[in-house]
Design a protein around this nucleic acid. Structure first.
Lengths: 135, 135
DNA sequence: CAGGCTAGGTTTCCGACAGGAACCAGCAGG
DNA sequence: CCTGCTGGTTCCTGTCGGAAACCTAGCCTG
């Protein structure tokens, strides 16, 4: 094959986070979750309690919040601090490793803030009537 | 997902991609998919065929690839080129809007490449063996 | 003293979705 | 004639997400 003429497949090497056997794929799939990015973003401002996250995020169930936080904790991105009080108080905070994830996530959310409108506009143009129930 | 009108109380403003009613949340949930990031990354080098993506990604089924590409196409991030040939040839490429997503995704994958090892290490430390019951 | 409250977590049930495999279309070649 | 190549769709099933109820455990209130 020519040099650089067909650049579609030539650019991917064993270090690319694209191939199935690359460890980066695992990390990408780690955060490629419905709630992971939102939860991490919610923790970016400092320690937050369980109930605070529930109300803050809006739409997540207790089960999914606990599950997501447990997974992040298991991956070393979040630290759980359970105070032995009554009523029980549990705070979650980012670990230094988790804090490094805030940067790319922030870029992602910045992109969303800048282009979310264009995405919704394209979605509206592609599917103009999602309300039409003219069956 | 019911985007209820929950009142946010902390330092998150109405423009934050964190609240349920923020359009950026929609965009974040758009890419918070198991395959979306990987597919977009696969398209970042130029037009790619359907079968090429299948082999390149490794692990994705035809259905999920088509579904993911259709969704990205509906959101204006990907453009589909179907050549009327035999055997049929279909190429997908990023739109300019989709190309702007490559930057944050690249940051994400760079983070994954840099910290994926630490994540796996923390995962290994947190769950070394499920038979260790010191309790 | 009994019952309810708070706050985090878990369990159960159910609906939706991801995923695999088989099938379809349409022409070329053995 | 029958198979194969390529992209896509449909069917079936396993798994996952979501809602609500239940649990713990101390304190407050009646």
């Amino acid at each position: 094959m020519g040099a650089g003429t067909f650049g579609a497949m030539s650019g991917f090497g064993p270090g690319d986070p694209f191939l199935a056997d690359c460890p980066a794929r695992l990390a990408v799939e780690l955060i490629a979750d419905k709630w992971t990015v939102v939860v991490l973003y919610g923790l970016s401002k400092g320690p937050v309690r369980h109930g605070e996250l529930i109300e803050l995020i809006g739409g997540i169930s207790r089960k999914m919040l606990t599950q997501t936080l447990r997974r992040l904790s298991a991956h070393g991105l979040v630290r759980r601090h359970a105070y032995v009080e009554v009523p029980p108080r549990v705070e979650y905070e980012l670990t230094p490793l988790g804090a490094t994830l805030i940067e790319p996530i922030h870029m992602l959310t910045e992109w969303a803030r800048a282009n979310g409108d264009a995405v919704l506009d394209a979605l509206d143009a592609a599917d103009p009537e999602p309300v039409a129930h003219s069956d």
